[in-house]
Design a protein around this nucleic acid. Sequence first.
DNA 1: GAAAAATGTTGAACAAGTTCAACTCGACTA
DNA 2: TAGTCGAGTTGAACTTGTTCAACATTTTTC
Lengths: 193, 193
Amino acid sequence: MTNDLLIKHISRNLTFSKTEQEEFCKYFFLESIEKKAFLLQQGQVCKFEGFVVEGCFRIFTIDKKGNENTLYFAAKDWWLMDIDSFMNHKPSDLNIQALENSKVLIISQKDKSTLYDSLPVAEKFFRIMFQKSIVAWQRRLIRNHSLTAKERYSHFIENYPEIASKLTDRQTSSYLGITHEFLSKIKKKSQAQ
Amino acid sequence: MTNDLLIKHISRNLTFSKTEQEEFCKYFFLESIEKKAFLLQQGQVCKFEGFVVEGCFRIFTIDKKGNENTLYFAAKDWWLMDIDSFMNHKPSDLNIQALENSKVLIISQKDKSTLYDSLPVAEKFFRIMFQKSIVAWQRRLIRNHSLTAKERYSHFIENYPEIASKLTDRQTSSYLGITHEFLSKIKKKSQAQ
DNA sequence: GAAAAATGTTGAACAAGTTCAACTCGACTA
DNA sequence: TAGTCGAGTTGAACTTGTTCAACATTTTTC
């Protein structure tokens, strides 16, 4: 079952009964996305939430100067959406693009509200997920303020080696908040040592 | 009642019945904190969650070089805690300090679990709060990557004038991720124009 | 399999932001 | 009342990271 991964993921955080597991999973359907295809493009309203089963995605914005800014990467076991757009029914600033052929368990916005109503423990589950997510955002902000580009790069490849290995330097640099030219220079320097 | 503000705050996001409001509020107690006093210091485990009723707080870390890094400011109507420490019962990296004489509605960790169990709609409420918080963190990260220090400063004082007016330049600069010397130079330049 | 397009590399000039040290000013304290 | 302490200012030298342009290399596309 493709839902096995989702159930395992839930169980890492909370104990669901068999019935609860089934109720939770029944709203999700599996979708395959080809490399380079977009699950969401800026301007669209995000009407789904996704859980990555296979592959990898990049979530990024494009600013006024045309620079891409990567918010995060989502590999297997990660959730995927534009929360702002999803919550407030407004056009998204984000692009969600597959970095390779991928599979995602999708739940529609409508079904998500139904799920919350029918299964109170789903509220608890997502409340915990969101809490964890905040911790990650806070830590990333502190790293951005207190570490140099080189230190952030090292941190990234050490902590997310599987993701890092799938990326082009341009994608990595847009996550770190530096230019790709400078990343190239950082890499050269660390080789030299 | 000191709980009026809390009830108003909830109502902005969700509709609670009178009974639910009472059940929700009964776990909170009001605490007064003097200017410069700490609600939490790094090394301690965060065993509470707070809702600011009056005053203002600064939540910050101190890194290895001794630099202060402000995560956020919490004025009236904001929530206050170290989520990581609270969730995982581990020593906090954060300091929560009152910038002026302040009042906070406090709920203990123990009562928070009781509240979640006794009032399912509390799960929904905090789930929504956390979602909103993530949106704010994501936006801040993008600003940090795509705007200059001067632009971030302008954004801050335009969007949070009440908070900004209470801060010293050192506090502001530690929020923006720059040195206080550089903030001083930014301010001088924008005066000149 | 060739052409086109995107990716990575390098250097030189530049801009943004830091560091350190010296100085001013007010506020609190003995 | 003097003294100290923390906050803000300024300048000079420095470091980090950017920009632009040229070129090499790989990947994609037809």
